[in-house]
Amino acid sequence: MGDKETEGGATREEIVQRVELMESMIAEGRRFTMRCGWIFVLWGVVDLAAMSWRYYQPNSLWVGEWAWPICLAAGVVLTFLGRALQGRQQGCSKGLRWRSVEAVWGMMGITLAIYITGAMVRHLTWQYSYIAALLIIIGMAHGISAVILRWRVQGVVAAIWWGGGIAAFCVRSNGGVERIMFLEMVFGMILFGLYAVVLERMGRGRANENV
């Protein structure tokens, strides 16, 4: 782009040029905005990995005590790494909405870390109410995020998590809880994350819309 600015009468070529310039710059700007769909996919995969580990390796030395902590720690590390890479590539662009959503999910992460650690230390993770509370807290984060972003799809996802929480209170077997968890991970995390990724690639990510 030249250093000298010209203003004045607009020819057809000039107008077309301006339109093309706007289109390319808007596309650049969209590429720059923050993307978060991949985080849902990552956490869905991490949680499914932990569940599979427990399910397929019931006699492994690591089962029970370490499958979840190791997978969750890996999830945290990968999330931070991904965000750091994203930040380096994209510079900084955080609207009020994005910052609000980030705060909700950040605080939810800390809440769950405290909750899960406490339950593990006290060996209470076998309780159905522990799973139910876990699902309801995640549903709450989705719900708040849906209100901030005015995003009905995420509202539906929040309802799926809350529904899972209620179902976890009602089941009477470990198999039932595992099925609920599996469905939540697939529908509430992976599929929702993929949907968000597709929207973001189309330049329609909700967190980047303006306040």
Binding site: I26, A27, G29, F32, T33, C92, N208
Partner: peptide, 12 residues
Amino acid sequence: ALLSLLLAANEA
């Protein structure tokens, strides 16, 4: 160009 970039990115 600057305004278009800011329109899409909101903040930069």
